[in-house]
Write a protein that binds this DNA or RNA. Sequence first.
DNA 1: ATTTCCATGTAATGAGTTACATGATTGC
DNA 2: GCAATCATGTAACTCATTACATGGAAAT
Lengths: 185, 185
Amino acid sequence: MARPNRTKVALLGFLSWGPMSGYDVRKLIDGSISNFWSESYGRIYPMLAQLVDEGLASVEKTESDGGRPRNIYSLTDAGRSALREWTEDPTAPSQLPRDERLLKLFFSAGVPPETTIELIERFVVELKETQEHYAQIRAQLEAAKDAPLDQRYWLMTLRYGETQREAELAWCEEVLAELRAMASD
Amino acid sequence: MARPNRTKVALLGFLSWGPMSGYDVRKLIDGSISNFWSESYGRIYPMLAQLVDEGLASVEKTESDGGRPRNIYSLTDAGRSALREWTEDPTAPSQLPRDERLLKLFFSAGVPPETTIELIERFVVELKETQEHYAQIRAQLEAAKDAPLDQRYWLMTLRYGETQREAELAWCEEVLAELRAMASD
DNA sequence: ATTTCCATGTAATGAGTTACATGATTGC
DNA sequence: GCAATCATGTAACTCATTACATGGAAAT
């Protein structure tokens, strides 16, 4: 696990909560870390198979217990220690950001300010929707009274998103004021 | 240009400033938008060839004007209107964020708070380095007195990064306070 | 009846990094 | 003479999304 694949560690993390299916993982992600993470089925299912190949997880096929057969994955000891190894490492790769909205803004001198105002106003709408989404995540995370220690960490990650979105909204107001002044010249 | 490739529009944008080589583009990026964008040679050179294929740019090989021959690319009219089409469109795809540091924090209940404190402290160091980098970019952008309209947009994008990093630093202080309280229990 | 949700998976496609190969020129 | 910089490009690899295919069960 020199530089483990990101999907891999995400799956190890969720499986550490208990045995579950790929479908379950996806739903858990949507309800907890969609704030800063996403996974597609196209990655989840192949990666689960890979975890089994590598001995980090085991799979049990539940045949006909009512619904359609499901594949339930559990961490092995090797999986648990791989997860531990990753969480204990205090480094994180700095990701190269690529923000298409900012790229557009950067090259906007050639279009009328009104166009750029709309670009930013759409961003504001999106940000407010995101904030509402965060409120739902917050409700879900705060409901987990049975895992108080985990919960504190979860709320830290949520708080990160909340403060970032707030700062973005403040920036939007600043930029909109400038653009509107430019438009009225 | 339904959903143009991101590298493509970035190249169109820089070429709109005047004819230049792939090498030049890379250096310009580093000095202006490394704040929120990056391109590797492995993308730049093939994409420049593709632009020529598509009639969006033309290339002129400068043979032996002193140094090693360079390939200088210029926008065609088609290239200019493709860029215009993109900048005039006030939409931007919302990118799915994947923050490995936050993922690690999310799953940190199983490791001692000291480990997580180090994770955040490293983040603080990185953020301060980034802020210094921004100061250099600011100096470069503010030096461009010959393009005052462009400059206003450039500074808006820079200001975005500055406010985001500030908010991150404030979040780090908050989280560090909580983690230190947890560590001293 | 039909839509929605559960559930798993594959194939096609795109995007992007990193490492490598090459070789000239400039500055020390 | 040697290192750094200029300059272009390719190949291998990784990573990830999207669309598609399949089909059962539950709800309306």
